[in-house]
Nucleic acid binder design. Structure first.
Length: 648
RNA sequence: GCUGCUGUAGCUCAGAGGUAGAGCACUCCCUUGGUAAGGGAGAGGUCGAGAGUUCAAUUCUCUCCAGCAGCACCA
């Protein structure tokens, strides 16, 4: 038999028979390694201990101590073990797929009865039994026909469908965890006992469509989390608990920022504190936009369907628009209007007033555009996904050869704003053409290439998000993350050759002829509502001083101090600081506790001493330490701190 | 929209087929207290909405509404 040479991480190499498995390699090194081994990395590829190696390769043996490999295998094997447990308890349940995800795995099942929380406990118990059995994991490659027949005989239609979707030249690999069998790419552990039995937890059940298609069967998805040991699991569960405290819905109530109620689902009642954040942010954005060369406009809320038909939105989004029908005087039919779900068609109307010259381009038209969309009920989420919201929207009308410049300019613009607002890192996704779209493939080629080139030229790294573009053009998404790690699209930049065509926007070129402008749709915050939600969660309610709705509370310790408290508040207010007096008949302990919970960044305490010396005692949120400062000093210090970053 | 769960006082939650309870918050009184809850009294609810079963429903059933988790959607 021919030999191959395997190179180990330390640089040494050894010869083995061709077709040797990592299990045999480990065995040849030491008994203990072969026991501990969970998988191998062969030429950079994650390799099952049972898979034969056919050629000279590099090889590294993984154990449970190797984070990445171990976590993937633990979670992947748990998915199989869970599916086996479920089928052992309920043999009629049909299995589908069960991939590894962040922190754990899920598996989708088809079962008539819903899984209950008690069922999860029973499944977990059964899983532990399976782990304790230390059943061997084995694998084989099967012929397609055999696999299809097998699954047909076992009444597993989903598996049959999966096989049919696998390209014909790819081998079908079967895995057994003990007697239980599943179609799977692998790799897997050597036996079920390698899974830490005390470091996983089944978290929840939820519906999920088969193959992600809402026209197909709704399956039941069980989510689990798993780690290498009990401590890491506990740390993760702890982190979740802490994250729940940062939930903007909870903090919104505690900080008295806003509320929502049944009569206006998906819409926000902003309280004074919340609205102060909103307006502060809006003032900041307005200054930035002016500096960035934008002109601000405002457009109608209720617009005739004819415009939405022309733009193409009526066709695609009618179901998701608030329709307003009006009996107009002298009209035979009702007038059908829609609340604007976005601003672009209206901006084109402004562009179209009067003739535009190439000298007008690029024309950057901004609007704090109040939009309404009838979002599906299940999509609503706090103030992050709502039916009434305001975009910091703008459309840049430009020539094709200006796309690159404008893209670069926008990425700089957005980066500076995100930095000011405390977001140093953010994800960027590039979404290309979706299945249903407007515009020819030529136009799409042009748009995608232009946007991609400009983004790369701007030195901005992105991940691909295939098929997720807007119906009229590709988009760049600037993604921020909430307290528990869910992604939210905030900023965006979209190249659009379609809408100018549909709404007949033109400009006169240097050649004296009519030309089509390109439209760049762009937003930095996305919507004020979503962005404020993210901002609250990012800072756990402790907003930067300049954004804090209540910046300072001046609290009396004795009622003799009341007059001076008001003097301090007035001095701060005059200096542009948002300050309030608290002269209630309460102890200072009580006031400190209450304003700390309300996330007020600075408390100034005033007792006899301060009145006498014309000072204040300063207590910063989260600090036990206090310090005494003169009134004049604290006013100028806090006034400086209250200055928005762009005005410093 | 789909699957599942939830809906009791402003908030957090307990409760039971015979028309409701706690803590905090609120109001009043006492207390003027030096950095995360001083004491006392009082007020507060068509038990999400509608229908049905029942002598009797807030409790059981159905429909609807809203919220939560996930899926789908996100111009």
């Amino acid at each position: 038999m021919s030999q191959i040479s395997l190179t180990f991480p330390d640089g040494n190499s050894r010869n083995y028979d061709k077709g040797v498995t990592p299990a045999e390699v480990a065995e040849s090194i030491s008994k203990s390694l072969s026991k501990k081994a969970i998988s191998a990395i062969v030429d950079g590829k994650h390799w099952d201990m049972q898979w034969p190696i056919a050629a000279d390769s590099s090889i590294a043996i993984n154990t449970l101590a190797d984070d990445e490999a171990a976590l993937e295998l633990i979670r992947h094997d748990l998915a199989h073990i869970m599916a086996r447990a479920v089928q052992e308890i309920w043999p009629d349940v049909k299995v589908t797929i069960g991939p590894v995800i962040d922190n754990g795995w899920y598996y989708d099942f088809d079962r008539a009865e819903p899984f209950t929380p008690e069922d999860l406990g029973a499944i977990e118990k059964k899983m532990k039994e399976i782990i304790n059995k230390r059943d061997p994991v084995t694998t084989e490659i099967w012929e397609r026909d055999r696999a299809v027949k097998y699954y047909e005989a076992n009444n597993e239609p989903y598996k049959v469908e999966l096989i049919e979707a696998i390209p014909g030249d790819e081998p079908l690999r079967m895995y057994w965890h003990g007697h239980w069998q599943d179609l799977c790419r692998g790799p897997h552990l050597q036996h079920t006992g390698q899974v830490p039995a005390d470091a996983f937890k089944l978290m929840s059940v939820a519906g999920a469509y088969w193959r992600g298609d809402s026209d197909r069967a709704m399956l039941q998805r069980i989510y689990g989390v798993a780690f290498q040991n009990k401590e890491k699991l506990r740390a993760y569960l702890n982190m979740l608990e802490e994250a729940a405290k940062r939930d903007h819905r909870k903090l919104g109530r505690e900080m008295d920022l806003f509320h929502m109620q049944e009569e206006a689902p998906g819409q926000i009642f902003w309280h004074p504190n919340g609205w102060r954040i909103y307006t502060t942010l809006q003032d900041y954005m307005r200054r930035q936009q002016t500096k960035g060369g934008y002109v601000e406009v405002n457009t109608p809320q209720v617009v005739d369907r004819k415009l939405w038909e022309a733009s193409g939105h009526w066709d695609k989004y009618q179901e998701h628009m608030f329709i307003v029908e009006v009996d107009e005087e002298h009209a035979r039919e009702k007038a059908v209007n829609a609340l604007k779900p976005m601003n672009c068609p209206c901006h084109v109307q402004i562009f179209n007033q009067g003739l535009k010259s190439y000298r007008n381009l690029p024309l950057r038209m901004a609007e704090f555009g109040s939009c309404n969309r009838y979002e599906p009920s299940g999509a609503l989420h706090g103030i992050m996904r709502v039916r009434g919201f305001t975009q910091d929207d703008a459309h840049i009308f430009c020539r094709e050869d200006q796309i690159e410049d404008e893209t670069r300019r926008f990425i700089d613009f957005l980066s500076e704003i995100y930095r000011d607002l405390g977001f140093e890192d953010f994800k960027v996704k590039f979404s290309d053409r979706p299945e249903t779209r407007a515009g020819s493939d030529d136009v799409w080629d042009k748009s995608e290439n232009a946007l991609k080139a400009a983004t790369t030229a701007a030195g901005c790294e992105f991940e691909l998000n295939p098929g997720e573009g807007a119906f009229y053009g590709p988009k760049l998404e600037f993604v921020l993350t909430d307290a528990i790690g869910r992604d939210w699209q905030c900023g965006t930049l979209q190249v659009d050759f379609v809408l100018p065509e549909r709404l007949d926007a033109t400009y006169i070129g240097a050649d004296g002829g009519k030309h089509r402008p390109v439209m760049l749709h762009r937003a930095v915050l996305g919507s004020f509502e979503r962005f404020i939600g993210i901002l609250i969660e990012e800072h756990a309610g402790k907003l930067p001083f300049w954004l804090a709705p209540r910046q300072v509370v001046v609290a009396s310790i004795v009622s003799e101090a009341d007059e001076y408290v008001h003097e301090v508040v007035d001095a701060l207010t005059t200096a542009g600081v948002r300050a309030e007096a608290d002269i209630r008949n309460e102890k200072i302990n009580f006031k400190v506790r209450e304003h700390s919970l309300g996330k007020v960044p600075v408390i100034l305490a005033i007792g006899h001493r301060e009145v006498e010396d014309r000072t204040v005692t300063v207590r910063r949120l989260g600090e036990k330490q206090t310090s005494v400062t003169s009134l004049t000093e604290i006013v100028s210090a806090l006034a400086k701190e209250a200055t928005p970053p762009d005005l410093l």
